[in-house]
Design a protein around this nucleic acid. Structure first.
Lengths: 115, 115
DNA sequence: GCCATAGTACGACCGCCGTCGAACCGCGGC
DNA sequence: GCCGCGGTTCGACGGCGGTCGTACTATGGC
């Protein structure tokens, strides 16, 4: 069949259901901001395993969930890996300038992985 | 003396010493955002006692401290009262667009005291 | 069928932050 | 000098969120 039984879909909130509080809580954690920064810097969607972050894998999963539920990222399965994309456009529509400002500030103080 | 002995001055950080982390932590608390929103809506500096917030006075004092240390507000004594002002310009220079975006989003979802 | 790989779920731990009340301080009236 | 009002300080408490390891599930390759 075209639609595999265990299609492993992921739930994403409509941005109208997301509160400013949620987004700020999502962005206030340094690890999550690291994730978002790397995602913004990449020109392609990234799989969960390719992120640089000083935490364990299970913790990272947790952070992805928070970001997804806050509408900051979109996730989808491709085979055995899960890809992540920034919902920059959606965010811009719901909270104009917010993500951009955080990203800019984040980059300005060495936001991405400091190598 | 022109300078009264117990001048009750207040320490304010230079915005260059303030991290994005600090500012986000300051703005993530709903009560503090309420304070900032009221300050932004007012056309004059406000004394500590005139804010609408669902917390005790001592808690409010704590929030003011956090906001001040994050460089979001400026405080100064006038007689027996303490006045509060937004450091909007300073913030704009250090983190362009950030405070504005938060304020706008905050206002959009009924930021100020819902009467 | 079987294994390796990618990610998830669950439960436990722990530190931090927001909250409060009570005691206190300092200034300005009177 | 004394009081009262505006704010602060201090200590205690409680809950929530970030962290981890371990056990688990799902997919794809062989």
């Amino acid at each position: 069949m075209a639609r595999p039984r265990t299609a492993r879909t992921v739930e994403h909130p409509d941005l109208s259901e997301v509160s400013l509080q949620q987004v700020l809580e999502a962005l206030v954690d340094p690890v999550r901001r690291l994730v978002v920064a790397q995602l913004a810097a990449a020109d392609e969607d990234m799989s969960c395993g390719t992120f640089e972050a000083p935490v364990s894998v299970s913790t990272l999963t947790h952070h992805f969930n928070v970001l997804r539920e806050a509408g900051v990222i979109r996730q989808y399965y491709v085979g055995t890996t899960k890809l992540n994309a920034l919902r920059a456009d959606d965010m811009e529509q719901r909270f104009p300038g917010l993500l951009g400002a955080v990203l800019a500030a984040s980059a300005a103080e060495g936001g991405a992985v400091p190598a």
